[in-house]
């Protein structure tokens, strides 16, 4: 191809790509989408690096998705003057992260552990935290630099949202009939998951107000319910989990750290299944008894016992603000001191 033709092709390329990207971006913005970050191992590792801040200036949160939806980081930081370091992982047990922090002699801070029984007592759901820890341990200079360039781009473009708006995610939502017996999880509705750079997740107002979208997610919870990993862990396996948790917490406490368990709200049929499979006395109460740690179970406190979970498992942003505000008060009651507090 002659050089002149190539130059014309290149100019056409630039015009077509720039205009397509611009239209694509405007399209999603016109549909009410806002900036959302991908919850990647590099993002987790970036937050993991911050756990060494002194306990007066930060608190670390670990657990599943509930802690990510239910703690409103802005509210937390405004009231306590502390950083909230969010290390929760969607759909995952917090145990690998707890062990990782316990084995890190430099970590001496405050730790809030979300106890979502179906995840906490299901060690098989550990892929995401393990990936995050591996990434944190093995991050290369190139990955570190790429993460920061990526952050720069993600903070500008709404369409850069792999979970919801990428080619793969959109293809996954095509209504294609599968063969009988094929398990297919197309992902959550895009408006269910928006994530901040601090790794807080929240559902959009449109999601909270849309019964159809809420029911879609409730159906997904029921589908997960049929998964055997939802079934309660008991016997020796449960004892080993209790032992692991106790050993890890003892290590953190021995270094001067503080640990507290929190059971965030759930409602409706989801709560009914949790109560059925994970009776409080055998799991939550026993966990506190064995570890000797304080705990805050939402059902024990009227201020947070009646919060509404739009899809039965997570709070919306308004609920998260209320929950976070009251959680701080309850933590103070448990003896936590915040140097700056509104």
């Amino acid at each position: 191809m002659r050089s002149q033709s190539l130059m014309k092709s290149t100019i056409l390329l630039v015009v077509v790509v720039a205009s397509t990207v611009l239209c694509w971006e405007l399209y999603w913005r016109s549909h009410g989408y806002e900036i959302s970050y991908d919850d990647t191992p590099s993002m987790w590792a970036d937050k993991r690096k911050r756990v060494y801040e002194p306990s007066e200036s930060s608190t670390v949160f670990i657990g599943g998705s509930r802690i990510k939806y239910d703690i409103d980081i802005n509210t937390w930081q405004q009231i306590t003057g502390q950083h909230a370091i969010q290390l929760g992982c969607v759909g995952s047990t917090p145990l690998p992260v707890l062990v990782n922090l316990a084995d890190d002699s430099k970590f001496k801070g405050r730790l809030v552990i979300d106890v979502t029984e179906t995840l906490f007592f299901s060690p098989s759901d550990a892929q995401r935290p393990k990936e995050g820890i591996k990434y944190y341990d093995e991050e290369t200079p190139a990955q570190w630099a790429s993460f920061h360039v990526n952050h720069l781009l993600e903070s500008q473009f709404v369409f850069l949202d792999k979970e919801s708006l990428s080619l793969g995610a959109i293809l996954d939502h095509l209504p294609l009939q599968n063969r009988p017996g094929v398990f297919h999880f197309a992902g959550f509705p895009p408006e269910f998951e928006r994530m901040s750079f601090e790794r807080q997740q929240n559902m959009t107002n449109r999601f909270s107000a849309d019964t159809a979208q809420r029911n879609t997610v409730i159906k997904i919870w029921k589908m997960f319910d049929s998964d055997t990993s939802f079934r309660p862990t008991n016997g020796k396996k449960l004892d080993s989990i209790f032992n692991l948790v106790k050993t890890s917490i003892d290590k953190i406490k021995a270094r001067g750290g503080d640990v507290i368990f929190v059971r965030p709200p759930s409602t409706g049929s989801y709560l009914a299944r949790e109560n059925k499979y994970y009776p409080r006395a055998l799991y939550w109460d026993k966990l506190l008894q064995i570890t000797g740690c304080p705990g805050i179970h939402y059902q024990d406190y009227p201020s947070i016992s009646n919060l509404n979970c739009p899809e039965e498992s997570h709070l919306d942003l308004a609920g998260a603000k209320i929950f976070t505000t009251h959680l701080i008060d309850l933590l103070k009651e448990k003896g936590w001191v915040f140097s700056y507090s509104k």
Binding site: T10, I11, L13, V16, V17, L165, S166, G168
Partner: peptide
């Protein structure tokens, strides 16, 4: 040629891998 090249770049950006 320009359109084929542009198509590749657009899908590349869209795939977000």
């Amino acid at each position: 040629f320009g359109l084929v090249w542009a198509f590749m770049i657009i899908v590349l950006i869209w795939s977000q891998e």
